[in-house]
Design a protein around this nucleic acid. Structure first.
Length: 477
DNA sequence: GGTAGACCTTG
DNA sequence: AAGGTCTAC
């Protein structure tokens, strides 16, 4: 079974981010940098390098019964290689749809950056954040499970749901892969109890009731709520209505219909609209987005003091008028930037430099050199781990101006020398500054759970480290 | 129209 | 505590 590829820069699609950022919950790591999922009746495996996305697919054994075949098998397929060729091509078409490769992310990022300074500041570290075109039912189930929950457990719940009620598609190694069960597979009254036993908690009732409500509707009811510009895979797009600041008619209609389901409120409905129904203007406002709105966009004062229904609409509408038609896409970039896993990742390279510096520090004890740098105190009133990473980037951005302020005695002027070591100094200094920031900026939780960030004095810490390192450098010669 | 609890588990 | 929803003041 061979790999095929699609040419796409990692800045246009970063699967390591997109597949783990919480819009889909069924992709699993199946290798060092591989992700696999039983989807659309087959197991698809993905990996990528900076310029290409690689994919392959495992299909279930051929079945003669047409009604159970999830993929139409062409009559002309005779040999095994003909069939594999067809399967791979069909898989590529599906992936282009599912991964939503049509929109140009670079252009969109540029537009949002122009409209929004905060976006311009944060987005560069989180490129390739693209909205998937997922199955609406799968999206609905995933986000019903998401309340007061985390990505890890949501994924685990989806896994159990599929393993217990979905069709087995195949194996990778000894790991079985199951596709999503249909709503009809969950209508048996025993399902609710069973789901509780499987650890779904109060969400078991929501899932069971929602499955029932959807089963009672006509086939395709959920998909009838889709954005006509983004139809089901294999169907043709039809022209969509005009954009209004609050969202198009079709979007509001879809949202209103979804909220009727059990366990589906405004937030879950917006997630389904955005990730599962192709409505780019849907902006889910969850606790994270609410934090962002308060921290970076001035919400939380005067009128919208807490996240009520009215506040929800105000925040979502604000982002729609700020970012435009694909506001939900921009929202997801900032959301990802705020997720702990990714914010920490952004700071990972800083941790590396700490190890390097530690080995240098151990060798020095001298204190004779003096260094003065510009008085620079960076203050953040509040902030979480993500804010922390951005704080670091702030400091890195100021590196050059700080460097200009650094003067050192004695005699040797490493920075201005033309030696290779001298040039190295700038790079090392940059690392030190970011490392210092990472070291000093400690987050603390207060009694009420609020995260506060301490004041940072870059100067004191940085001076100390630079002095020590230079001392050490000299000792080596 | 906003606030307070309850709802279930598990990382 | 964790990506909410529902119900009753």
């Amino acid at each position: 079974m061979s790999w095929r590829s699609i040419d796409i820069p990692i800045t246009e699609l970063c699967i390591d981010t997109v597949l783990r950022s919480g819009q889909s919950f069924r992709w699993k790591r199946s290798g060092p940098l591989e992700y696999s999922c039983a989807i659309h009746g087959r197991i698809i495996t993905l990996k990528q390098d900076p310029t290409k996305l690689y994919y392959r697919a495992i299909f279930p054994p051929a079945v003669n019964n047409e009604s159970t075949a999830s993929v139409p098998i062409p009559l002309i397929s005779r040999t095994a290689s003909d069939l594999e060729e067809f399967e791979l091509q069909e898989t590529q078409r599906f992936l282009r749809h599912y991964l939503n490769l049509e929109p140009n992310l670079g252009e969109l990022y540029a537009q949002w950056s122009e409209k929004d300074k905060n976006f311009a500041k944060k987005a560069p570290k989180f490129h390739g954040v693209r909205i998937l075109k997922q199955d609406a039912w799968e999206t609905l189930v995933g986000f019903i499970c998401s309340s007061c929950n985390n990505i890890k457990r949501i994924s685990q719940m989806m896994d159990k749901l599929c393993a217990n009620y979905g069709p087995l598609i195949g194996h990778i190694g000894d790991v079985p892969y199951y596709d999503m069960p249909s709503p009809a597979a969950l209508v048996n009254p025993r399902v609710e109890t069973h789901l509780r036993e499987l650890g779904f908690g109060y969400r078991a009732a929501y899932l069971f009731q929602t499955a029932q409500m959807i089963s009672r509707e006509e086939d395709g009811w959920l998909d009838s709520l889709r954005n006509p510009e983004n139809p089901v895979f294999g169907h043709k797009a039809s022209p969509a209505g005009q954009m209004l600041p609050e969202g198009r008619e079709g979007y509001r209609n879809a949202h209103a219909a979804l909220v009727e389901l059990q366990g589906v409120g405004a937030k879950v409905a917006d997630c389904v609209c955005l990730f599962g129904l192709g409505w780019g203007e849907a902006v889910p406002v969850d606790t994270h987005v609410w934090q962002i709105a308060q921290r970076d966009y001035g919400f939380g004062r005067g009128k919208h003091k807490s996240l009520t229904k009215a506040t929800y609409d105000a925040v979502a509408n604000y982002f729609r008028q700020l970012w435009g038609k694909e506001a939900g896409w921009a929202h997801s970039v900032l959301f990802t930037a705020d997720l702990k896993t990714f914010a920490e990742k952004a700071a990972a390279n800083i941790v590396k430099s700490e190890e390097i510096l530690d080995s240098v520090k151990a060798e020095t004890n001298d204190n004779t050199a003096t260094v003065s740098i510009k008085e620079e105190t960076i203050v953040h009133d509040n902030g979480n781990a993500d804010n922390f990473a951005l704080g670091v980037s702030d400091i890195i951005a100021r590196t050059s101006s700080i460097q200009d302020e650094i003067k050192h005695e004695p005699e040797e002027d490493i920075m201005n020398s033309n030696t290779a070591e001298g040039k190295d100094e700038n790079a090392v200094l940059k690392r030190e500054i970011s490392e210092v920031a990472a070291h000093i900026m400690s987050n603390k939780r207060t009694a009420n759970g609020h995260v506060k960030q301490e004041r940072i004095d870059v100067k004191t810490e940085l001076v100390e480290r630079v002095v020590k390192r230079r001392r050490s450098d000299r000792l080596r010669r």
